[in-house]
């Protein structure tokens, strides 16, 4: 065993030191990144227990007064129920229409198919405020105003592209010979769809359903002209409240929404048995 030349040794030591430094730096970056991402959510939870109305860190004391204030405000309750109803209905319609459409897109070949797919995905790119004003004028002309119907119809268009995109990506990889086998054994096309195709894209259905629910639940500018006080959705009710007041009532509500989101996510992860999250981004 011969000793390494001194020069090589020095290089090796320097490299090892640099590697350690990089390792530390990258770990620090990861911690900082996660902190930055979570900070606004964490602070909201802290502030929901503040004893004072004004924003000062750290809060001088703790209390539950903002929660009791929140529960005294009926508009938020109504808005929450409305948002859940709208998000559920829009997601349901989008899942059915989106699944059928994705199936047709994946299993067919015709001229202009790519253009059609581009058209179906195009609402993602259109600024939501533009769509919002469009729906405002459209529904006003139709005389269809107030209630949850116009907002639900609008949200279907907002979430449909996500559903089509994710389900199409899930359908592409399916082995068609399984369906052919089922058909050869005498299953009708509907039974094949229900018992063979749908179970295979279960995770795609869960993820696209979850994503559309969240996206619908988060709509502000696409729906703000369709609400008129009596039918505000939750984010719009919060948005309008925040334009006027900035006390921690919103923090209390936000903390509950964070809890709600965590619960929905946990349920979805359970149902889909820990499926791949990256598909959520539709790539």
């Amino acid at each position: 065993m011969s000793a390494a030349a001194p020069a090589e040794l020095a290089i090796a030591i320097r490299e090892a030191r640099a590697e350690r430094l990089r390792d530390g730096a990258l770990r620090a970056i990861l911690v900082l990144g996660v902190t930055f991402i979570l900070l606004p959510l964490a602070i909201v939870v802290v502030y929901s227990f503040s004893s004072v109305a004004y924003g000062v860190f750290p809060p001088p004391g703790l209390s539950l007064r903002w929660y009791s204030h929140l529960f005294g405000l009926a508009p938020f309750r109504g808005a929450f129920v409305r948002s859940v109803v709208i998000a559920t209905a829009a997601t349901g319609v989008a899942l059915v229409a989106g699944f059928l459409c994705a199936l047709a897109l994946v299993r067919s070949r015709f001229p202009g198919k790519e253009a059609l797919r581009g058209f179906l995905l195009s609402p993602i790119v259109i600024p939501k405020i533009v769509l919002g004003v469009g729906w405002f004028i459209f529904f006003a002309r139709l005389g269809l105003q107030g209630g949850v119907v116009p907002i639900t119809l609008a949200h279907i268009i907002v979430v449909l592209p996500f559903v089509v995109n994710i389900l199409a990506a899930n359908l592409v990889g399916l082995d068609e010979s399984i369906e052919e086998a089922a058909q050869d054994l005498g299953a009708s096309p509907l039974r094949v769809l229900w018992h063979v195709v749908l179970p295979q894209i279960r995770s795609g259905l869960v993820i696209s359903g979850l994503l559309s629910f969240i996206v619908s639940f988060d709509q502000v500018e696409s729906s703000i002209f369709l609400t008129r006080g009596e039918n505000n959705t939750l984010p719009i009710e919060m948005f309008l409240y925040m334009e006027k007041w900035q006390d921690p009532t919103i923090a209390a509500l936000s903390a509950l929404l964070i809890l709600f989101a965590a619960a929905v996510l946990a349920a979805a992860l359970l149902v889909s048995r820990g499926t791949n999250l990256r598909r959520m981004l539709g790539r």
Binding site: V34, L38, P40, L41, I43, G55, F57, I214, S254, L277
Partner: peptide, 29 residues
């Protein structure tokens, strides 16, 4: 970790904006 980085998207943009309103106040964190 990916889930943590992704998690703000599950919460309304109004909530996240409110978080920054508290963080960036003159006596904020």
């Amino acid at each position: 970790i990916a889930l943590l980085l992704f998690s703000p998207l599950l919460v309304s943009v109004v909530v996240r904006t409110y978080g920054w309103l508290i963080l960036l106040a003159s006596q904020g964190l």
